[in-house]
Amino acid sequence: MTITESANNPKAFAPGVDKSKSYQANFKVWRGNSETGALQDYSVEVNDGEVVLDIIFRIQADQANDMAVRWNCKAGKCGSCSAEINGRPRLMCMTRMSALPPGEEVVVTPMRAFPVIKDLVTDVSFNYEKAKQIPAFAPKPREADGTYRMQQIDVERGQEFRKCIECFMCQNVCHVVRDHEENKKSFAGPRFFIRLAELDMHPLDTNDRQMLAQEKHGLGMCNITKCCTEVCPEHIKITDNGIIPLKERVVDRKYDPLFKILGLSKKKTND
């Protein structure tokens, strides 16, 4: 087989695949645009070790050349391929076919909290708007020798939040906006609460992000029902380590009478 021949033959891309383990699966994929759309049936081959994104590619290659899907890394690191598989937000490239209930049909839809552009591709610009509204890191002045000094234990907590790949599945699953379009104005969402928490816990940051979180970004709308944590592919403990600590910091500032009496509620006092 020449190189051109093998490029035209999809099967040649999977050398060494044990075809004895292949089977036909039934897929329902949502096809449509912002006006209209429906689930469409596809019967498609599945090989050993494949993930849902592989199957979507095969449908695209063999049966629906115009099917839109967003992806980049196929390694769970770019956060592009977020969708809903059997009703649950998942990265298509990280969902193994073998982990889905055997023999059952697989339903793939775009994320349901954002406007759809085409097929599996949604418009996630809501998240970029929210990102812009968060003031950047504002470090205190450098020390006399021109450096900053930080202890590892002081920055550790924030490092967990740096694992975020911005797949926006937490934003998508959060009922505050998923079920209430009108809340999008006043609610930044879990991804940005951990950004605020990260900066607020940072030993060098000088901005006051606590009042900002509560008054501008809608922290009080979150009822800590933890769906964001459940879907995060990076296993960031969004609620336990981000949102709840931030809520407690807001209590220090706004709702704790003792802090008021002691005069500690006026400014950030997290030494």
Binding site: P89, H175, D179, Y255
Partner: peptide, 29 residues
């Protein structure tokens, strides 16, 4: 609110813990 993740809740309005009475959740400590 919600019954489970990615299951639409039945309420048409939602304000979370921002106002009375749920704002008193902040008295937890």
């Amino acid at each position: 609110s919600p019954p489970a993740c990615a299951v639409a809740e039945p309420h048409t309005k939602y304000t979370g813990e921002t106002r009375f009475p749920l704002i008193f959740q902040n008295a937890h400590r």
